[in-house]
Amino acid sequence: MSASFWAGNPVVSIAVTLLAYALAIRLHRQWKWIPPIVAACVPVVAVLLMLREPYSLYNRGGSYLTWWLGPATVALGFPMHKHGVVLRRSLPRLACVVFAGSIVGMSTAGLTAWLLHAPLPVVMSAVPKSVTTPIAIEVCRELNGIPQITIAMVILAGVLGATFGVPLLRLLRVHDDRAVGAAIGTTSHGIGTASLVRQSEMRATVSSWAMAAAGVFTSLLAALLALLMRW
């Protein structure tokens, strides 16, 4: 049944992915600690391996879903505008904080990988690791990195920051809601922001603005980096 059933048919790929995603959401609602992305990917990979369907054939359909990351990036402008209105008085200072965080994040990620002798595409995949997935992927492509590696790092950065970020900041006696929000949004994008929603509205608001701004700053800085490298 394997080859004739799937055989790179894009509709089958999309249907299987949607089904896995819907189940993953259910699982996540039941058991909060299961990340939806893991729960959605594992069954699809299992089915692909079982039917010996190569990834490249699956991705004929998968790439239609990936395309929508573009409009999703545009959609980030909506929370950025909504929260920007609330925060307008502190926006210039907040922008400075996020900008500094973006520079530090890109350079430390790239340098650490480079110092450990990772090949250039892996180094470049590490550079956008702090920002929200759709922007990280676009930046990774601009820098000729490997999108899959970037995604894995982005998700880990989100989960680690959401879990250990706030306790670590409390240890450092950072209690100010704006500072905490800016730090978590810049470090752990949407996953971190979601974890702040239950703590305080100000934290979540600053965090979602910071997450969108970090994405924009990182792609501007990456454009500069790409120009320098071509030089």
Partner: peptide, 30 residues
């Protein structure tokens, strides 16, 4: 949004070799 990056993440299945060689650099950098 998670749905939209499922297909790319699944691509990790083709990268086992690269990951097994580079995991230290990736985790340290992270």
């Amino acid at each position: 949004m998670v749905l939209l990056f499922v297909p790319l993440t699944i691509g990790l299945m083709d990268m086992r070799e690269l990951l097994s060689r580079q995991w230290l650099a990736i985790v340290a950098s992270l």
